[in-house]
Design a protein around this nucleic acid. Sequence first.
DNA 1: ATGCTATAAGGCATCGATAC
DNA 2: GTATCGATGCCTTATAGCAT
Length: 306
Amino acid sequence: MVDTIHLWLSEEAVGNYNPTAILPLLEHGAEHKRNSIVSFSGSIQNLKVSLLKEGVSVKGSLPKYLFSDNIQTLSRSSLEQSCEKLSDELKMPFSKATISRLDIAQTFLMNHAPETYFNCLGESKYFERLTQPSSLYYQNTQKQIVFYNKIKEIQKKGIKVPSVWLNQNTLRYEYRITKRVSKSLKWAHSNFDDLFTEKNYMDLIDTYLMQYDAIKKNRSVTFNLEHMNSPKDFHNQILSMAYNQLGDEAFQMIKELKHRKAFKNKEYYSRLKKEIRNLTTSKCSEESELIKELDLKVLSLKNNYR
DNA sequence: ATGCTATAAGGCATCGATAC
DNA sequence: GTATCGATGCCTTATAGCAT
């Protein structure tokens, strides 16, 4: 579940903080001097560590740190284990470190090539959708959602593909909170040890699933006599087909209308959009097989609670 | 169906500190 | 020195809920 993390442990939280004593514990240790301010940097395994006068910053992937790859995702107990390992190796209490970035991620084995699923994943409120050749991004200033081909990414980095993934379609879905972690999760604070409680761990999974859910899924619309019981149904199906054909264009048009202040009241724009959403997700449209498969696989994470 | 309002979420400006 | 990053508080916007 949890992949990359950024931790900050302030000098007060450490107690007897002495950067020079910790430096020998790091690999590739180096000293930096700028404007007569001295700091140190180095790493333990894959984690990048900076020792500053004000405190310690640690950045990197926790499952890689604990298991040397991020195929496995961290359970709640292994999260706690990674904290103990880190605290042990650096001899500092990292359970009280604050989290400044948190990535929740999972790799799914799919029936088709990862890229084929991108088209079914439409807009998401508050995010800008950006397509790349082998990845799909949703961005705003504090969060990021990414879908990508995990094997391709591994190969790009020149790492050997793990045997369990050979010849598999690996779709990775990541949800990254890059700013204001505690606010985003609605927690009073976001220290490392806040991740270990059952409630919070479940929060992470819920948030991850909710973000997936919030992405509008593109459906295929076909004229369907089954659900046609009134003239209104007929109209609605025709409308729904038209909107489906327009795709995102309809929403762009509403944006433009809004820019021109075309409607009398500001809430009309969101209501119109909601109407369109309802229409295009109604009975007369059909969920694609691809989305059904992805839905099933992502939502099955609920079973991995705890 | 239409209008008003509260709420919640992200954006933006700013500040202080770090990185280069 | 300047560019960048993270935290914070306030502002703006989208939307849901309620009332007409």
